[in-house]
């Protein structure tokens, strides 16, 4: 393979029903950094697939894409792995990007390895960061064992070099309303002819999430298994509401049906958050969870066990029974 023929950094953007997933903007910020590190003159390129998506290219441009390739077709209305992969495979082989980034979302985690399988190249999975090292090589930082270990992954001899990155981990993307960018339409008709229709999307269903999204909240109040009951869980919810924040949880609270669902789960297999203030109530602090909240501003933890691992990763430690402490705190805030 002539590695030198592959140039430029791409972000495969993700949109569902006309809304771009914010991880796509985060990735564009990262792509700009990589471009500077590489001292490359190739435009940072975003690729957007879907139906009725004309208006969305501007958003990608304002978040840092210098070129937006828009692939519009009614057959791309809902994500189908076979269909999306056929189109992207042709586009990638034609334009030969050096680096392709995608969000480690459900769609990204299906599509990226699939493209890696078709293109016979390497994909670094659910990375916490990607960089260009001193030797000018693309390096992906990948967590293993629930985040206890991080490892550098390289893809020296194959192109494109691909990686999926966890949403929320790269930090706030920067919007520039005056950004200058180019929009290119790509005709996918030929690629779509190759799709056999063995995987057919028949519908998409999204739940409305109440309140402030966890990823955007300035304050996150997290309850762990030590909360002990659904009744005590109401303190977590009440405190989050009082502080204008959102509720987070660890796996047991989902399994016990205290929390609303997996969308509240923080950790390696859940969400990554970086609020101004994190309050962990009866959270023990497994590595798995810590990896999802380590970039928070002020970390406050409440736990009965003074040796709980969470205290080693906290700024403020309160040795107390959260079920007794939280009602007092709530009562006091209401008086304020």
């Amino acid at each position: 393979m002539d590695i030198g023929a592959w140039k430029g950094i791409w972000v495969i953007a993700e949109q569902i029903e006309g809304t771009i997933n914010s991880v796509s903007f985060e990735l564009l910020g990262k792509a700009k950094q990589l471009k500077e590190q590489l001292k490359s003159s190739e435009p940072v390129t975003a690729v957007l697939l879907g139906s009725d998506i004309q208006g969305l290219a501007d958003e990608l441009g304002q978040y840092g894409a210098e070129e937006v390739i828009v692939i519009e077709h009614e057959k791309l209305a809902i994500f189908e792995n076979d269909t999306y992969a056929a189109v992207l495979n042709d586009l990638i082989q034609e334009r030969k990007p050096e680096i392709v980034l995608m969000g480690a979302t459900a769609i990204g985690q299906d599509l990226a390895p699939m493209l890696g399988g078709i293109l016979k190249t390497g994909v670094a999975a659910h990375c916490v960061d990607v960089n260009i090292n001193e030797e000018g090589k693309f390096v992906a930082v990948v967590p293993a064992f629930g985040g206890k270990v991080l490892g550098d992954i390289f893809c020296p001899d194959h192109r494109p070099q691909m990686a999926t990155l966890k949403p929320g981990i790269l930090g706030e993307p920067v919007l520039d309303k005056n950004a200058v960018f180019k929009v290119t339409a790509y005709n996918a008709e030929e690629s779509l002819k190759k799709v056999t229709g063995r995987v057919k999307a028949v519908g998409i269903y999204k739940n409305e999430i109440q309140g402030i999204p966890l990823e955007k909240a300035e304050v996150v109040v997290v309850g762990g298994w030590g909360i002990g009951s659904k009744e005590n869980w109401s303190y977590i919810e009440e405190l989050a509401t009082l502080l204008g924040g959102a509720v987070g949880c660890t796996r047991p609270a989902v399994d016990e049906n205290w929390a609303e669902g997996e969308h509240q789960m923080i950790g390696t297999s859940g969400k990554s958050v970086r609020p101004k203030v994190y309050i962990g109530a009866a959270v023990s602090g497994s590595t798995h969870h810590l990896c999802g909240m380590k970039d928070s501003g002020l970390v406050i933890s409440i736990n009965t066990d003074e040796n709980a691992p969470i205290f080693d990763s906290s700024d403020v430690c309160i040795v107390a029974d959260a079920a007794k402490f939280l009602p007092k705190l709530i009562e006091r805030i209401k008086q304020a």
Binding site: V149, L150, G151, D152, K294
Partner: peptide, 15 residues
Amino acid sequence: SPTKAGAVFTPSLSR
């Protein structure tokens, strides 16, 4: 394997 593993390290989580 197109991907090759480099250094491994543990993230610093202490505060």
